[in-house]
Design a protein around this nucleic acid. Structure first.
Lengths: 192, 192
DNA sequence: CAGTCTTGGCTAACTAAGATAGCTTTTGAG
DNA sequence: CTCAAAAGCTATCTTAGTTAGCCAAGACTG
């Protein structure tokens, strides 16, 4: 019987693809094995467990997002950079909803966890954009969290069909980018 | 053998409590049955399946949130209303992280799904707050989505420990409310 | 108060999925 | 060519969800 020639990377990539097709929570060892033309126990030569597979899918997604975002903001600043960053994240989530779902609630394990490294890189890109808006260092953490929250929240809501009825998500997305841009450009004034 | 006197509502409430204690994904029929002093199959007299239980927990959380939010914004407007709404949501999520997690990605089923009804009520409260900011009808859907996204995103990130290192989430939260307030008060101007 | 019907709980058993043990065979290094 | 590591397999075990069918608690009726 000829070997299938699997590797950990190939298994994880197939798992991510399967998640995009069938939904993250429908990825089972059995289904993935079938997809790879192999019996279930064979997968355990490449990943430790289902939980390990899920964690690796999350890591893969995080790396891909951070790379896409990093590329997208190159040479841009201010509103253009913000719009490019948001667009890159959103395009990734729409193309890979299953893999992105893996990152929601994924725990960082150990020190050289790709999930952690990619997360830091993504936050680095966001920081750069925010510095372009003149956000002070003391405010940076808070601004980062706000921007992460709105991008992540939009992604989760859209990926899980949380937006019902009515308006076009594309237009809402553009509106949101404007909204963030306004919030970042206007310095704090006393409420009126 | 005396009866336990369970009802669907009691089972769902216990499930929600268990989710808050142990994490939503650790709620199993067996664990919940044990907690209720009953054998696993007995639960099926009150809920149809684990999926049904999870959906009902999501519905319960949605109702509780919408009620808390509705109460909190009574008699307030503008920034005060926004801050109260955000605070109510956040307090619910911190007190009931497991139940809130149930609502993430929960599907609306049928027409009188409590999840749907509560969702509409929550959106109603948000709309009222936004109208207080003078958001025009044509923009309402987009503004709603932006505000939902940032509140939901913050909740998910905090509930899943997504904020690492550094700053106090309380301060970040206050900053975020300010940020949204600024974004809503400043009308669209051409980018500078 | 007795009979009976509904219903909530039980035990027993089935299924699906994750996981492990241990065998076999490919395959690459020396 | 030899042989050891690695990759795949079958068989088996465990756990959790679920169903079937029994039995008794307790409410309703005559």
């Amino acid at each position: 019987m000829p070997r299938a020639g699997l590797t950990t990377a190939a298994v994880v990539a197939a798992g991510a693809a399967l998640a995009d097709e069938c939904g993250f929570h429908n990825v089972t060892m059995g289904l993935l094995a079938e997809r790879l033309g192999v019996r279930t126990p064979s997968l355990y030569k490449h990943v430790e467990s289902l939980a390990d597979l899920q964690h690796r899918i999350a890591g893969l997604a995080a790396i891909e997002i951070s790379e896409a975002v990093g590329r997208s903001v190159q040479g841009l600043a201010g509103r253009d950079a913000l719009a490019a960053l948001a667009k890159a994240m959103r395009e990734y989530v729409m193309a890979h909803p299953g893999a992105y779902t893996a990152t929601v609630g994924a725990e960082i394990i150990g020190q050289d966890d790709p999930l952690d490294i990619a997360g830091r890189r993504l936050i680095g890109s966001m920081s750069a954009v925010l510095r372009g808006y003149g956000i002070a260092d003391v405010e940076m953490d808070h601004a980062l969290r706000a921007v992460r929250s709105i991008l992540h929240g939009f992604a989760v809501l859209q990926a899980s069909n949380g937006f019902q009825w009515a308006a076009d998500p594309d237009v809402s997305f553009a509106w949101m980018v404007d909204f963030v841009d306004r919030g970042l450009r206007v310095r704090s004034e006393p409420a009126g």
